[in-house]
Design a protein around this nucleic acid. Structure first.
Ligand SMILES: [Zn+2]
Ligand SMILES: [Zn+2]
Ligand SMILES: [Zn+2]
Ligand SMILES: [Zn+2]
Lengths: 540, 540
DNA sequence: AAATAAGGTCACCAGGTCAG
DNA sequence: CTGACCTGGTGACCTTATTT
């Protein structure tokens, strides 16, 4: 119980932690220092860290992602639980979501020396992760490849991303489109998505879902009962999507499968003008073809059109509408022909050895699939990451977090062991509060990564657990201010490097800063960061 | 078998080719160069080509349309076969349709020096076509005149079309309806859709396709036996409509003869209210007569009613319904009387020489007959041409087809003969892949040209063989970019003029570009192009 | 009984609305 | 101007009626 436990920094990498079984149980593990980030060593750190020393050395409280599986299952929202535990008895455990404040019962979730567990099973309680470099693939690794399993994706996303990462400035996506932004993050949303995407028409009738909702509105009789039965895959209406930004924790539970709009990636409401599209794009297109339009692009006519910025450039939005095949001639009235199905099974793609005639078509569909995947991931990132180019602008730095007045007296360098321990605890508490919302964000983001939801709950859980730290670090990278040596969190809190060093080992903090610094030099834009994190997730 | 064969370009015009009897049979003919387009000289080219030199000189692989007759027969779908052959043993033969991947048995289809065959018979296997200008009429020419044999048509279609050809902008059809579109296809973002028609983007329930999935789920009773007898021409139900556009080759194999709706040209589902009509028009008419109607035309009451825009003007749709004879009185219950067959329409028009009293009526019927023909052809064109105004928008250019990495090094002009030969083969292969789907398209289009199907199989075959190149060229014309000197294919592939010149003689390519350029100046819309190609087909 | 069409159903979408 | 929501169709299917 007492803080001392095993020494902090020198400890090998076995992250240690306890969990709270109740408001006052005690954890057997060492308390002093398990990283609040789930695991110490990460590919990023270990491979890039200046001090190549393998043992990340960091230690501190740990994040319990246990019961995360509950969140993954959209149906069992109520039982979802997510807390942070640090092996101490403080009440610092925070739940980001009102619905998920329940503490762990008393079973499950003890993550001490999880190395074995990590490599072993997926369903275990807490997950503490491996060490670092040359980390063996988790058992579910085989499944991983199917996450982004759009036929094309497995082959293209990596390529696309690697290209993106390699060149600091302008990169070209699989479709030859620019994925990067003009300047650094200043360009905001102007990021061009190169020329047109190519036809997308595909679409098909997204899944038909099926409940037999009675609704009956007979044309002749008075009719009534607007109780629509939500048959098709769309039909949402509720969709309070990530809505307004700034929400640190995303709080929505999309019952719907989320069919993306072909134009902007928002939730599609149906098949409009021949294209699966959202209400916004539908209305915009209708207005555009009704009255004379004379849109003009203020930039190069290559604006990326996604939900968050679709209203920035009418020209490019309309252009995108046309590109994906919207047309008054393509409207489909009446009930959808009982045919459809989500036949787009990727499995078909393996028939590449088939005739060459459909080669072109296949290629096109492949590119289209890639584009859609990119769009979806980009959209997911924007919806579920609090640190996007746009949102950063709204973040006002706050001198310090008010919750726990930690101030390291300027003059005083020396702390007694006791003082240090207190400082560490307070600091940990603060960090936990700051990081917790990010967990939820990553979970929501993951759920929107194409095909991720089709993994088993266990596999999803494992991947998120393994990937969280790196995803979080990737997202936070641009919030590190090398000049002032501080990290600015999404709520504006500034944590100085020294403060971090209270909780983590100085070497670890140094590594983090180095890695982030290097990452920042790549100057990735939001979309690219989103894609990168998706890959990190998939290859955790 | 081996590529060398006889020299390439200098060869007279006798297109040569071999065919593949199996994966490895050899053709006796020279391999180097038979035109993939079936024949070199065409009326279009020979009459307009700058270099009036008769010998088109072009040479290259040839397109085998052999066994095409299988496709013409709607019943023998399975045996249909269609491939490209170029006299080499490469596996480049492509079948555009899964159902037609069978290679030629071992009989038929050898088309070497088809000049004789061409002028002689029709049933021969492969057809290689004549030379060029002043091509003699095929023996079946006499039959041709009966193709578009609506009495009025022989006199009107040409007229209508010639008018259409003359005026680049707005033309007026026989019924006084606008056949033209607002601007050309260049309208782009400005005003996408002018006023009316300009049919486009198929999409709808045209295709047919699919397997007869049983569906029948009757709400009340247990329902049952989806084993419809399919007696009449209609009764479709299966229609897995062409669904998404963009299909380069019409991938549907209509089991049904496709009986068009008298009102809108869509697939008719039966005989409703006294008229062969589709489900949509049936329902519309029923609704119209049930509740009082007060439709009103926002224009001049002369809107063209076709499937693509039938919902844009209720007034004109209902008017059309009445015009074609829909009435509550003319219902016919029960099984269709005895005689059946589609004898009805012509019979009506045969009364042209009637007395003076019913002169108006006769005239009207005549116009109606013409209108029907135009409607059917327009509909057929939209359904089976991948290069319509609407679809073009969705075509994103691709720098080169990835299938065969052909790149002509910019600086290098000189090729050794060997290199040239290789280039030619690769290029041919590429072209073959691109053109193959078009063959199927033309076949399907032809089958929907009124009365074409009533010709003998042999005659149909001959006409298609003779007309394919010109039809294809007509369709492709608007895809030629004179500025960049490239041809954009329906899948977005860009083939440069220089690349074409590798396969064909430069003169031939020049002629093609010239002809297309001139054709483009006519600024025809989709309907007009469809009508033109129908005429080309009929007068091949 | 089989075939076939009228009529009913109701999933679905174009447009219009109007607060934001 | 945008887009969530509502209204009035629309047409793919299905049931019922009629005729052979
Ligand atoms: Zn949208
Ligand atoms: Zn723009
Ligand atoms: Zn109709
Ligand atoms: Zn009208």
């Amino acid at each position: 119980m007492e803080p001392s436990g095993s020494g902090g920094t020198g400890q090998p990498l076995a992250s240690t932690s306890g969990y709270r079984a109740g408001p006052s149980s005690s954890s057997g593990g060492s308390s002093s220092s398990a990283l609040p980030l789930g695991h110490v060593g990460s590919r990023l750190l270990s491979s890039t860290g200046p001090s190549g020393e393998p043992g990340g050395t960091g230690s501190g409280p740990s994040v319990s992602v246990s019961s995360l599986s509950g969140r993954l299952n959209t149906a069992s929202e109520a039982s979802a639980s997510l807390t942070l535990s640090h092996g101490l008895n403080t009440n610092s455990s925070v739940a980001p979501h009102p619905a998920s404040t329940s503490y762990f019962p008393s079973s499950s979730s003890s993550f001490l020396g999880q190395q074995a567990e990590y490599s072993g099973g997926s369903s275990g309680g807490g997950v503490m992760v491996p060490q670092h470099q040359a980390r063996p693939r988790p058992p579910s690794g085989c499944v991983v490849s199917s996450i982004l399993s759009s036929p094309a994706l497995s082959l293209s996303i990596p390529g696309s991303s690697s290209a993106g990462l390699a060149s600091p400035s302008t990169t070209t996506g699989p479709l030859g489109q620019h994925l990067s932004v003009p300047g650094s993050s200043s360009a905001g949303l102007a990021s061009p998505y190169g020329s047109m995407p190519s036809p997308s028409t595909t679409t098909g009738p997204l899944g038909e879902g099926g409940g037999g909702g009675p609704s009956g509105i007979s044309t002749t009789s008075a009719s009534v009962s607007p109780s629509h039965g939500q048959q098709s895959g769309f039909r949402d209406t509720s969709g309070s999507d990530a809505e307004k930004v700034q929400q640190p924790a995303d709080s929505n539970s999309p019952k719907q499968p989320f069919v993306p709009c072909k134009v902007c990636g928002d939730r599609a409401s149906g098949y409009h003008y021949g294209v699966t599209s959202c209400e916004g794009c539908k209305g915009f297109f209708r207005r555009s073809i009704q009255k004379q339009i004379d849109y003009r692009c203020l930039r190069d006519g290559k604006c990326m059109v996604i939900r968050l910025n679709r209203n920035r450039c009418q020209y490019c939005r309309f252009k995108k509408c046309l590109a994906v095949g919207m047309s008054r001639d393509s409207v489909r009235y009446g009930r959808v022909p009982k045919r459809s199905k989500s036949v787009e099974d990727h499995s078909v793609s393996s028939t590449d050895s088939a005739s060459s005639s459909q080669d072109q078509l296949a290629l096109e569909n492949k590119q289209l699939a890639i584009y859609d995947v990119i769009l979806s991931i980009s959209q997911a990132h924007h919806s579920h990451c609090a640190i996007t180019e746009d949102k950063i602008k709204s973040i006002a730095r706050r001198p310090a977090t008010l919750m726990s007045k930690i101030h390291i007296p300027p003059g005083q360098i020396q702390f007694s062991n006791e003082e240090l321990e207190v400082q560490r605890l307070l600091m940990w508490q603060q960090l936990a509060t700051l990081i917790t919302p990010a967990i939820n964000s990553v979970v929501e983001f993951s759920k929107r990564v194409p095909n991720f939801s089709e993994l088993s709950q266990d596999d999803q859980l494992v991947l998120i657990k393994l990937g969280f730290f790196e995803i979080w670090l990737t997202r936070m990278a641009r919030m590190i201010d090398r000049d002032d040596n501080v990290v600015v969190f999404e709520d504006g809190s500034c944590i100085s490097r020294e403060e971090l060093a209270v909780v983590y080992s100085p070497d670890f903090v140094t590594s983090m800063f180095e890695v982030c610094s290097g990452f920042n030099m790549l100057n990735l834009n939001d979309t690219e960061i989103g894609l990168f994190t998706a890959i990190v997730l998939a290859t955790a």
